[in-house]
Amino acid sequence: MVNEDKKTLARMINGDLTWNELKPIISGRKDPNRFDAILEILQEKVPWAEKILLPLHEHLYIVSKDGNRIVKCDCGFEFGDYRENWKTKCRVRVRDTYEALEELYPKYMTSDPEWEELREYFCPGCLALLDTESVPPGYPTIFNFLPDIDMFYEKWLGRKAPDK
């Protein structure tokens, strides 16, 4: 197993590792304590005090707040109960014309908007682009990941979740 000290992991999160530094981490044995190490780094990084239960996304975390488990952006915006799709609290732009799609892709290299549109989901707080969906018009918003937090902590890590 390669050395995965806190500083190295923090640099990895920031995308600052060179290929020679990253390669052994990719191909080597994984540190069984990686989850806790990353959690510690992220908890120090966010500007708010709520306890992170699970990192969900580049900007989003499931945190414990007032006895509830909610999704929170690193900017501080709160998306509500983690069991509901956080995308339904976002601001949404739909690119469903060639004009809008061809701002991002050359002509001929986009979808036909009648076949597929491109949705952009923004954080209402900081306007970070949190997700894109390339789906046919009328496709329901996709709820990508619903973790079982208690099963994870209790059955896999052998301890209670931090809010229990």
Partner: peptide
């Protein structure tokens, strides 16, 4: 990984 439900859609 993490236990739970995962979803995606391709076309």
């Amino acid at each position: 990984l993490i236990p739970g439900r995962y979803r995606a859609a391709s076309f």
